[in-house]
Design a binder for these strands. Structure first.
Lengths: 337, 337
DNA sequence: TTGAAAGCGCTAACAC
DNA sequence: GTGTTAGCGCTTTCAA
């Protein structure tokens, strides 16, 4: 194991100064082709590679060309697509990405963010967990740019890319009502997650809009895993007055519910998922585009990094209801032809 | 926007030397509690955070506590789970993770790896694309540790974590043969991908073992997207002598094929996927555990980083055939009771 | 227990 | 076109 050669080593080997090596390495103009060639040869000979740690230190106020990306869980398909999209943009912009998972834990999120900012990232893209993010204000005031995707960060006035979860859920429930359902269950992940809370609010709004009283007997929060969702829906269906339709707050709940849901019960789920169209019945979903969300968030971040100082804005991306069958199973109150 | 305060700023504010601040920041012993308290107060007051870029420069030969992770595509469920697992281990070990996607492009892989090594990562975890990785030898000789997951890197003698793809595919095809199939199609991703090539080899070996001649008419390589796989299987089924069973090289191909496969044709797919058990018929698959692969790779890497200099080893993790129905559809040559 | 000096590898600023 | 000097923020080393 050889020690990593420095510019000084290259300079000595090539018989020039370190400054000339620096110019060659960075493609700066004003070096004679012959000199440059000589230096290039020494670089290859010694296996020299620029040390960006040292470089970043000297070039203060300059960018480190590193951004931090913090998601809840990279293994989640939505977040994986989101992360992949941001990484693509970062690469086009010549930056690398530090990635971290918060696992829905604010303390862990803080720790990871701290590890990122101490490495002087130019900016952060967050899918923030719940809880106040005021701790980020000091980093922001010192020049770290922050953009949120999927959810806003409470206590932080930064660019944010979301979808209108509430309206989309309301639309989904109205759709079920239009198909003759009045007894509609809600099965959801932790309500404290902003998107989930919004979706639940949309559910309640749609019921209220149709004059249907909400019934806590057929509402279940806090479902984090498929089997939990399956157990919950089983229990809800055992109700003396069982629901004829279900709204699922996300793909994990949908998939869990589908494992046990009788085929006469209607279902609309938030988030599209692989093979949703191949099930029997095919599953009607509200879909959103994680790639668009990630790409938009990344573009906003790089605009900030490169000097955009306009007021923080919230971009709301569209959702789409994909009608496949499970949401169109008729309910008992269908006034039909 | 205030400038980021330095140790010197904190030192002046607290009326001590920068060295004392350094000791407090790093929890070094030998600072009077009163002095430490005074410094802590200044740190909080000024919003000071240690600059790890400068720190890493001075602490030469020390670790940067940063590793690089290069996968083919983070959005792929297998790789997302792999990445998530390595990130978990890294966090436990106090390191952060730089992530990059090669998109099956060796040049892009090289660029990203170069961006990582110039930031002095302590090590790299790769899901390498095809092609020679000899370019990594110089980085390795200068102390960057490398571990490969899912596939080996051609031309590189480093720790590698894989499964026995060939044996698993052979087992899958033997399973189809045992259920009476002799006309078995192979539909696969790019054969140049090591795992895919191995799986194809296993397919051929199983046919050879049963004395069944391979027939290129029912073999298709290079399928990268679901619709391509659907089109390919449609064409293969139009063959005058169509297959009665299919081996799919991975989950993407399986899902694509399933969109159009008649239910009397048997299927075994590589890689388990969500809802495989909910389809009709439920899909028999060869499953492997991306979390175990990623975790193992990360543990191997950190062992190397912390001094393990034993010869490079290859860890082969188990696969499991999950029998669900689609692989047990009887073929015309079933010798039954 | 605390501090002063030196220097990590690089580049900004200026000189030649 | 090329070199010299200084210094980025921190920690190592050694002195007080």
């Amino acid at each position: 194991m050889t020690a990593r050669p420095t510019m000084k080593d290259v300079a000595e080997h090539a018989g020039v100064s370190a400054m000339t090596v620096s110019r060659v390495v960075n493609g700066d103009p004003g070096v004679l082709p012959d000199t440059a060639a000589k230096v290039e040869r020494s670089i290859r000979k010694l296996g020299y590679q620029r040390d960006d740690v040292a470089r970043q230190l000297r070039r203060k106020g300059q960018l480190t060309q590193t951004i931090g990306l913090l998601v809840d869980n990279v293994a989640d398909p939505f977040m994986a697509a989101f992360a992949s999209a941001t990484e693509d943009v970062a690469r086009q912009r010549g930056s690398v990405v530090l990635i971290g998972s918060s696992r829905d834990d604010l303390r862990r999120e803080r720790e990871v963010i701290s590890a990122f900012t101490s490495r002087r990232v130019d900016g952060l893209i967050l899918i923030p967990v719940g809880g106040s993010h005021r701790f980020l204000r000091s980093a922001i005031s010192m020049g770290t740019h922050v953009v949120c995707g999927d959810r806003p960060a409470p206590g932080l006035d930064v660019d944010t890319v979301v979808v209108d979860n509430r309206a989309a859920a309301q639309q989904a429930v109205a759709h079920l009502i239009a198909h003759g359902h009045r007894r509609i269950a809600y099965l959801g992940d932790r309500r404290e997650i902003w998107t989930v809370g919004e979706r639940y609010a949309g559910y309640l709004a749609a019921l209220a809009g149709a004059g249907i009283p909400a019934d806590e007997q057929i509402v279940w929060h806090g479902l984090r895993r498929g089997p939990d969702a399956a157990a919950a829906v089983t229990e809800i269906l055992a109700n003396p007055n069982p629901p004829t339709a279900v709204l699922a707050s996300n793909d994990i709940v949908s998939v869990g519910v589908l494992a046990v849901l009788p085929s006469h019960v209607a279902l609309v789920g938030f988030d599209d998922f692989v093979l949703a169209g191949r099930l029997d019945p095919p599953v009607t979903v509200i879909s959103q585009d994680p790639v668009a969300t990630g790409t938009t968030a990344a573009h906003l971040l790089f605009a900030r990094i490169h000097g955009d100082s306009s007021p923080a804005r919230t971009v709301t991306l569209p959702t789409q209801m994909i009608i496949r069958g499970s949401g169109e199973i008729p309910g008992p109150h269908l006034k039909g032809p």
